[in-house]
Design a protein around this nucleic acid. Structure first.
Lengths: 231, 231
DNA sequence: CGAACCCTTGACAGAAATCAACTAAGGTGG
DNA sequence: CCACCTTAGTTGATTTCTGTCAAGGGTTCG
């Protein structure tokens, strides 16, 4: 593992509070691997063997049914994924694949469980992490059920802008077809929705979205702390 | 509190493993209340004050945005709700109202937190519970994004039938408009979807759904353990 | 240079929401 | 006890939204 990686992982809320001893014993058993883009890391239905951590690159969480597929999340460094499956020792509900060349740390579930059982601080941190994940998915469900595709796109742009300090222009960090799938629509619909947002204060130029009328866009997106976060 | 209630709560996975002492101290501080139908128990955006438990009746979890409203879940006895918000001490993401006359046990979050911190078994149970909740919402999201309204209805019927031991007939336990909202459609769409399922092996008769051709219905719903559970 | 692949656009089809009218059931008050 | 009112559910007509199919432009990469 690289020098910078361990501290970066240690800084994650999930690992910040646990004892140094346990942290070292957990990470010393870890595997580190670098994967090219488009490599399947985990497949839904399989049983968990490692808690995954991305330290470089990007990972897509996706799920399939009946020859259809949808993007559930995009995980960027430094983050863990599939914690819940590891905890429950139950089949993955999502698959994961690399989007770019990515470095992945793999923590064996066995070690995770044993340390989890004897380090109360780690258990607490796990509770907090899972509660946060849960709330994240609840937000996503509200977003899907309460907003139309156009509204979801507008809200996404507002959110990205807010994350960049209310920037007037945001750069899409993922392929549009991926964003479309994440937002629950087809690439064609996203393309049209983008175009139609010109009348609502947002212009698209390649990978860059320029907010031309923040008030108009906000009127459409109606951002809400209870859907779009950040808490 | 009634004689039968405490044991029933104790039997919940969340409370089963904690020490008797802590369980008694937690529940002795509890409030018990009976509410008529259509009473708002909690409102999204507010800060958590009690962990709620339904012991009788039924509770609807719902969420609103921009004059729209959607049913997120229906909670039946004996179950807890809004655990995640209590743990994180963060604003509710959902509102709750009684559907019928309901008995609700209220556990003050303060007691919850303090016992949570000193009872490792309770902390473990909380982790398990949250992981299960998380996986539940992930399933719901997959259901919404991967299946059409008709397919969701078919899957819902299959699921209800499976829960009743593959019964050929199931009784809808909630109002249709509520079911529609839960499944992410309008009452009109649900009505039409029900009717259209006659060609796919399910007939509706009032509150009762009769599965006339299980194979056909299954071909439409394509139930998957990774969406419809039970794990 | 060619072969993928992504994105866009157009035409069309299908799904689902909306608007409106009507029925039936249940509860209320005279 | 009955007329009335409210509400859930259904149905029809229509609009809106979104997906599908097909084609073409542009880019990247081997």
């Amino acid at each position: 593992m690289r020098d910078s990686e361990l501290p970066a992982i240690r800084r994650l809320p999930l690992f910040r509070t646990m004892s140094e001893e346990n942290f070292l014993s957990l990470t010393s058993a870890a595997y580190v691997q670098t994967f090219p883009p488009q490599v399947n890391l985990i497949e839904e239905g399989a049983l968990p063997d490692f808690l995954h951590i991305v330290t470089e690159g990007a990972v897509e969480m996706f799920a399939g049914w009946n020859r259809r597929e949808t993007t559930m999340a995009i995980v960027r460094p430094v983050s863990t994924f599939i914690l819940a499956a590891c905890i429950k020792d139950a089949p993955y509900l999502m698959s994961a694949r690399t989007l770019e060349r990515s470095r992945i740390i793999l923590l064996p579930v066995g070690d995770l469980h044993s340390i989890f059982r004897r380090d109360p601080d780690f258990a607490m941190a796990t509770v907090d992490e899972l509660a946060a994940c849960y709330r994240g998915v609840v937000r996503q469900t509200k977003n899907l059920k309460l907003r139309s595709a156009r509204e979801r796109l507008a809200a996404y742009i507002m959110r990205k802008s807010a994350e960049a300090g209310d920037a007037a222009s945001v750069v899409l960090s993922v392929e549009k077809r991926l964003l479309a799938s994440f937002l629950g629509m087809t690439p064609e619909s996203l393309s049209r929705a983008m175009r139609s947002l010109q009348d609502d204060g947002a212009k698209i130029d390649g990978q860059r979205v320029i907010i031309t009328d923040r008030a108009a866009l906000e009127a459409l997106a109606r951002p809400s702390r209870l859907i779009d976060g950040p808490d």
